[in-house]
Design a protein around this nucleic acid. Structure first.
Lengths: 353, 353
DNA sequence: TATTAGCACTCAATCGTAAAGAGTGCTAAT
DNA sequence: ATTAGCACTCTTTACGATTGAGTGCTAATA
């Protein structure tokens, strides 16, 4: 048995209808809904076939059909190309988002938060955005400054202009000359070095050269190290978690509680980010339907992720999480447009953080 | 009609029982529960009185009684003193928290996040913590550094060692001498100054003295300004929002969705922080029952807040949000202990951020 | 006079049954 | 190959009966 033209059309009709209503769809509905001019009985036969093939399923004996994960997958992979014309609407919405983004403050963090928020408002799904992650992190600038007698400030800048500070308390005040010497020592030895290459041997060498100030060097290196570590738990911003209450199939206490926890403990979302960053399929957009998701608590959801890339190889992930019957067309369009807009926004001004 | 000893005891018994079960409590239950040796009929008469006085109410005609807001208020204000002996348990739990806190990283942010998380885990309520806010913000240190040809880094430290950076892009490379002059100019004029006192006149004067570099001074001042602005939207960390699902009276979709949104848009929680910071009642602990709360979405909840204070007048707020039938004793004890522990932890090491 | 036993009454929750409605699968006719 | 028709299944809704917890009132009691 094969998927002929007509079966495809019927499957498509079933999915479209189910995406809208969230109710199982029956043969009679399809018979009227499509332009195939077939009676419900015929549709029934076809539906029976489609079920046997695994594209749809019945929640119970005398109910209509709903799409299976396999059915959604087919839809997402092959059946969405046809409705190019709607893309305009999504573009429109993203244009609006861009307008607001341009009134942004200069801080990456608030831009990303804003973006997550707007995506959530526009799509009515939950959203997440991971801050761009630099892979091959090189030290660009390092400096010690005296803030007052007993406090030194370390400022570390790595490629991509990510800045990190930390305070060091010293018992003995440092004179200007020593401070200058230390700064020169640190910069000449460390500038341009990938953080990964700073190993124990190098630290030992530095300490030796620093002489009396070995402790201080140690503290500075600690600060650098914590920069690496900090990089491991990626910053993730989420928004619109409350949207899950709009979809009854997700809103029961058990599920809702789990999902809310997942959004709160952003930790768990890193799975999504990693998955999405590694597996590049060309478009940079990936769709996880139901059980395909890497996050177990989302097995009743669908997740669409997009990878965005700023200059200097900084990559991040945008994700949209909703029910299985998500409006894939709109979501994917929106993400595609957003992705390209992000490029243009950030290509213009020079790599500020 | 007055509140005699016996009525108080009965009211207390009703509240205690309701806190545990969450179900309306009947006369027969109380008759057995207390050591008053009274029949249910007598209790009924007393309960009828208590209802008339407004301390308890009936959800419907033939149900037991539940405490009213007035009843809870009486309980919290006057009836909790008696059970000092349980304090041990709370102290124990906080000791455990302290142990984990001491393994902290050196960053305020992660400490606070951790703390919120642990509070939530221990109490089974939702929690929030606001980062300490400095009121009379004085500039302590300001510096421009060259990161590369076209990029300057501004580092600003204000009292309380809050550090802020921002990148400035310049078209014309600056030579070392100019940079040094600028740094001296900025520091001699601005150090020790409360941020509020930096006005337009002062900025104009600085620009004039800077001559060619007026634009750069302008950008630096922008960075300082954004430090102030940033202070307006306080950082708030939350945890345990999912706990609301443990209390059926909060877990219906409507309410849950609103509460979750409130926790996500931490913005709304600033109300709580402000209220709590201003109104000092000596202990620094405040209890909002039901409609007393400053946040409308929490009108079906009770909120307990505590103000903590680090050195240098930095104040923050810890809040616990749960159902009306919250275990006030435990929550208040926990907050009190935590408050004092926080003091000792941070009094020891010198004002690191 | 305060307390208690007893009883009638109220109301929410639960259960079972019936009826309605949506949808299917199958068969026979077209 | 398609369709009309019908029996059947299963969920949803409605409804009434029953149960049980709890109250308020009254009359008896200490």
């Amino acid at each position: 048995m094969d998927l002929d033209e007509r079966k495809l059309k019927i499957l498509q009709a079933i999915i479209r209808n189910y995406l809208e209503t969230g109710e199982p769809v029956g043969s009679r509905t399809i018979s009227k809904y499509t332009d195939l001019n077939l009676s419900s009985a015929t549709i029934r036969n076809e539906m029976s076939d489609l079920e046997e093939l695994g594209y749809i399923l019945q929640p119970h004996t005398s109910a209509g059909r709903i799409p299976s994960d396999k059915g959604y997958r087919l839809y997402v992979d092959h059946m969405m190309l046809e409705k190019e014309e709607q893309l305009n609407q999504a573009t429109q919405e993203v244009k609006e988002m861009q307008r607001i983004l341009l009134e942004r403050e200069d801080k990456m963090e608030s831009v990303l938060k804003q973006m997550a928020k707007m995506l959530a408002a526009n799509t009515n799904y939950a959203t997440m955005i991971s801050a761009p992650q630099v892979r091959g992190n090189k030290l660009k600038f390092i400096q010690l400054s005296r803030v007052d007698k007993h406090q030194l400030l370390t400022t570390i800048v790595v490629e991509g202009n990510v800045i990190k500070n930390s305070m060091i308390t010293v018992d003995e005040p440092l004179d200007d000359e020593t401070l200058l010497k230390l700064n020169i020592l640190l910069n000449t030895n460390l500038n341009g070095l990938p953080i990964e290459e700073i190993n124990l041997a190098m630290i030992a060498k530095l300490k030796q050269q620093a002489g009396d100030c070995a402790d201080i060097v140690a503290e500075v290196m600690d600060a650098v190290a914590s920069q690496i570590k900090n990089d491991e738990n990626i910053e993730i911003y989420t928004s619109g978690a409350n949207n899950i209450f709009k979809y009854p199939e997700l809103a029961d206490n058990q599920r809702a509680s789990e999902l809310i926890t997942t959004f709160e403990e952003k930790q768990l979302l890193t799975e999504l980010v990693n998955e999405s960053l590694t597996d590049e399929t060309g478009t940079g957009i990936q769709v996880y339907i139901g059980n395909e998701t890497p996050v177990k608590t989302m097995k009743d959801c669908s997740v669409v992720t997009a990878t965005y890339e700023l200059e200097e190889g900084m990559k991040g992930t945008i994700g949209i999480i909703g029910p299985r019957r998500m409006d894939y067309d709109k979501v994917i369009d929106t993400l595609k447009t957003l992705k390209s807009q992000l490029d243009t926004i950030y290509k213009k001004d020079d790599g500020r953080t």
